[in-house]
């Protein structure tokens, strides 16, 4: 079924909406959740939460890209779930890697700096658009889709080391930009 037809079902409050949505996007969303949680039950729970949230958000929302819309919800639930479960104990290598890499880019600053999250998000987007296409793809595959280094290396047909180097360099660049933005306020 076309995305617009699925969205119409949500707007018409038809229960088949969730069935159609999950039928079309459960594989896509499961992959995002699994990439971080690597646990079947937790990933399934994220998916159920995703379909319920979609029911809550539509209407009033009418997403322009349904895949990104539901993927974003799943990703949010997966990160929350991961943080709750691993607040006290160490996760395994991949999950710890991707989370600690993202933590490197989190900043603290005083409230007087009045830094709006929206402004920082704009800086991130500006940075991404400026990146060469391959670098942008690698960065988004890693931190939005939460893919493993090895999966990205396969996708780009280069060594895992090359992907690690690429990500590390671009994280450094982005951190510098965000830091400048915060300090410059």
């Amino acid at each position: 079924m076309e995305d617009t037809a699925i969205i119409d079902l949500f707007w018409e409050r038809k229960e088949s909406a969730i069935e159609e949505l999950s039928g079309k996007y459960s594989g896509y969303c499961y992959k995002i959740a699994w990439n971080l949680l690597m646990n079947h039950e937790d990933s399934e729970e994220c998916l159920n939460d995703t379909w319920l949230s979609a029911w809550t958000y539509m209407p009033p929302k009418r997403p322009s890209c349904l895949a990104v819309f539901v993927g974003r919800i799943t990703r949010g639930f997966a990160i929350d779930c991961f943080r709750k479960k691993h607040a006290a104990k160490r996760p395994d290598a991949h999950r710890a890697d991707v989370c600690s890499e993202m933590d490197e880019l989190s900043l603290s600053y005083t409230i007087e700096e009045q830094m709006a999250e929206k402004k920082l998000l704009e800086e991130i987007e500006k940075f991404l658009w400026k990146l060469p296409k391959a670098d942008r793809d690698i960065f988004i595959r890693r931190y939005w889709y939460l893919d493993s280094i090895c999966e990205i290396a396969k996708r780009h047909k280069v060594s895992a080391g090359c992907i690690k180097t690429n990500l590390c360099r671009n994280r450094k660049k982005l951190f510098h930009i965000l830091e400048q933005e915060v300090m410059g306020q």
Partner: peptide
């Protein structure tokens, strides 16, 4: 203190970027 949570914020990047990747 305020904390900018990159993992959370990155989820909200432009749809076109996510779609492309």
């Amino acid at each position: 203190k305020k904390e900018f949570d990159f993992a959370e914020a990155f989820g909200n990047i432009d749809d076109r970027l996510v779609e492309e990747a």
